[in-house]
Design a protein around this nucleic acid. Sequence first.
DNA 1: GCCGTTTTCGGCCCGACTGTTTTCAGTCG
Length: 577
Amino acid sequence: MSQANQTLTYLFAEMADVLEILGVDRFRVNAFRRASRVLDGLTDDIASIGPDIKALTGIEGIGRGTAQRIAEFLETGNISDRGELMSQIPGGLIELLSIPGLGPKTIGLIWKQAGVESLDDLKEQLQHDDLAELPGLGPKKLENIRKSISFSESSGDRVHLGTAMSLARWFVSKFIEFDDVQQVEYAGSLRRGQETIGDIDLIVAADPKSAKTISNAFKSLPPVTEVLVNGTTKTSVRTTDGLQVDLRIVPPESYGAALMYFTGSKEHNIVMRQRAISRKMRLNEYGLLKGKMTVAGRTEKEIYRALDLAPIPPELREDRGEFNLAESDELPALIKLSDIRSELHAHTTASDGKWTIKELALAAAERGFHTIAITDHSKGQAQANGLTNERLEQHILEIRQVADQLKKKITILAGSEVDILSDGKLDYPNSLLEQLDVVVASPHAALSQDPKKATTRLMQAIDNPHITILGHPTGRLLLRREGLSPDMRQVITAAYERGIAIEINANTWRLDLRDTHARAAIEAGVKLAINTDAHGPGDLDQLLYGVVTARRAGATKHDIVNCLSREALNRWIKGTK
DNA sequence: GCCGTTTTCGGCCCGACTGTTTTCAGTCG
């Protein structure tokens, strides 16, 4: 994301937090939150739109007030009434909002009535029970806050998509075995395929009479370490890896409504509700209702239809334009896992992989792929046993040999994941690169260089006549390191002009390109490659996360080179040279 | 603060659970 978008996303979210603690009306707070969210999801660099009030208010969710603040920021680097706002509360209060169970009202209360100005203040006050004297607070609430603080200090609060998906699928497989369970699915941000996940939502359809039995069985499953909420339709637990799992049990006739409701996103749901209201109906987690009559609720599909919409896939439910498409029945036919027919980025024992060339090729063939590109690291990646020029030449010969042996099973391409050095040069000379079928060029080092340098670096790499795919362009590692922040518009334009593909690296640590950038690439007509960057057994399974990310970007199989037939892929690769 | 084939004013999503209460406010999703 561009620097300005990122900063403004943060500033508006922070202003919303302050307003919330100050207790101004929630609609103003919501307006700031929405502005923040819109900026976060914006594919255009806000700086390139410029301080033009008319253009800014043209963006959905940005009104006059927000536009003026953005314009001021773009011109001066500052939002003047933000300073005024910030001076009204102690800065240390904002982080208290991230403590589960502690909301803006309570924070305002303990600040005004007990002088709490920071997390440290709060922890000190929690050592005794004086806060329990305040209205609305009691010993139990204080105990919950103590627990929340110590929990959040002992573990990060989000996990990778892959981690959450594995756990969720395990729970789903357990629920399927229960006799009383008629249907079960995971919902929430996991079902929408977000890159990191805060908790898991499970929706079960069952006769209300058996809810108690199901809930009890859930609480006694092995990964459950603690029960957080214990109601008749809702049960929340904490699991061994610290993840919260929420279970909702609904009658079968409400299953679709509940699944939709808890899949979200919140923003998508709000629009759905408004649609219902404008049609004199009501939508909640039990169904779409007209007066006392249920219009729809058993499936998501029937609810969308009843609101004059084509069914919207979970990955698109972010209120980022999906409603217009669904209204006119123009939703893209999103790519499916089974559409992927090739892997163009994988490693072997020659560098840091665990498979030999043959093992990797057979694993790819086993998946039904028609083509696999062997792309080991280049020499700059010494820690990953990157190949020197001489070793690469030797490696190419070996790949050709195995390719010949296995030619009836799968097409093996000789490639390299060549380092994009910090100055944009590639780690092998062109004389060597031209011997390869596929060149995936990716940044691995100098990942904290400034955005300008990063942009120039990637642009220069794209200019190389031998590059086929720009690999994990930012080099980010989710929940660990930010990676590069190049001007993605420029990079995308350059990739388009050069006719090369940009990678969505499917590894759950990377998901790089991220969804919004992938969307911008598709809109610009750039082809994407979804690659697992496989290093050994199991890694090809990560493909799903790349597909999900592509789906969030609105990708069809026509946008993804891995979906091409063997012959078409071959032609496309030749066309990049 | 945002938004508009009911509107430039008057709305803005809604139900479950918990802990505090003794009918409800705060928080969450």
